[in-house]
Nucleic acid binder design. Sequence first.
RNA 1: GGAGGGUUAGUCUAACGGUAAGGCAGCAGACUUGAAAUCUGCCGGGAGUAAUCCCAUGGGGGUUCGAAUCCCUCACCCUCCGCCA
Length: 426
Amino acid sequence: MFDFEFIRNNFELIKRSAELKGESVDVDKFTLLDLKRRDLVKRRDAIRAEQKQISLKVAELKKSGQGDKAEDLIKQSRQLSESESQLTVEITEIETELYTLISWMPNIPDASVPLKTVTTIKEHGNPLAFEFTPKTSDELCESLDMVDFKRSTKVVGSNFPCYKGLGARLERALINFMLDLHIKQGYTEILPSYLVNPKSMFHTGQLPKLEEDMYFIGKDNLFLNPTAEVPVINLFQEEVLDAKDFPIKYVGYTACFRREAGSYGKMTKGLRRLHQFNKVELIKFVHPDSSYQELEILLKEAEEVLKLLGLTYRVILLPVNDMSFASAKTYDIELWAPASKEWLEVSSCSNCEGFQARRAKIRFRDKGEMKTVHILNGSGVATPRLFITLIEQYQTADGGIIIPEVLRPYMGGIDIIDSKKKNQET
RNA sequence: GGAGGGUUAGUCUAACGGUAAGGCAGCAGACUUGAAAUCUGCCGGGAGUAAUCCCAUGGGGGUUCGAAUCCCUCACCCUCCGCCA
């Protein structure tokens, strides 16, 4: 969200970036309402000033025991009061409209972001060649009994996975491995609430735009978080941070809930796109002057997960039309699923600059001046597609899965998942 | 769920219904080799070249010429009671 003054001075920029992000923002309407508001406010202020003067005179008269002389003044003030409240009604209406208008303006992309072309920044690892026909993750999950999709459907519905046996253990191992790694990188762990209030959803930019994609508990007016970004960032809403602590780094794990309304087809098969999934999320509060350097560091910190797991991945720079509402610049990390033969997105690392911070009123003091912090977020990483690519990349000719060494301590020393060991819980 | 108490600026704390006062922190300057101390100014937001004006006491409403103050309502915090893992 932007300040009024910024909007007044940057019409073209806002209009163009909104169009590129697929939003229609009526900038002309803003100008019209803004001018009207300023005019009305000026008129109301004049009335209020007059009322104040009268009020002071009344007080004086009453103090000096001449209360009866105040009658005319009081009558006059009552009349002013009427026109004042009329103007206030008009102003409130306009402000509501303006606020709605502003809350639908997406963040402006950084100058380094391409308009429509996806740019591959780097590739890591080798293209994997198997001397046998590799199984897809769906086949492996079934043959090794790691995820029970069918039974879970009876409990809740489709696309809510139920991990089972060593599948559950592997999922848990991944989460813990990632958390421990990021803690080593200097992040403070947060285990936040899964439910968040509407205000918080607005601050981080999920509302108003993505309301349809969110689970909502009407009885208590709460949303299920779609990412730990929401509860973690909102911990600090309306706070003034200390610049001495920058960069402030938090890592949070939560289950994430998304309705994925309108999704269908191949992309929803297996673990590809789920209503509930696990994600470890990195959040940084930084000084505006260094937020783009911090974004590069954040990306490297997320990549470290995949490097240590020995996975083949690539990093792409998202063009404006693929970027989220709140982001100014986003890198995606994609993993290679060799059997399914597709790149799967497991992480988005974004610099949202002051967009969320202005909404959430998260500020810091810089040489006596209050400023808006810049907020970055990055998945480090989401588990389902990591799970898919890991089991596809590490599968053996006889249908087992080798556990990467860094995960073994989290798996009770298990080094391979195979058909004999599939339900083992040593 | 019930009863009572509370919410004032970055922070801490005042204000018989008469128009938000202080302290601390912070910033700038003076003094100083430098610092501390001290002194001066600034130190919530908006409009205006400026003088100045308006808004702001958790949110929303009401009473009043006038509300931080009185009333209603909601949110949150604290204490106690009830219920429960």
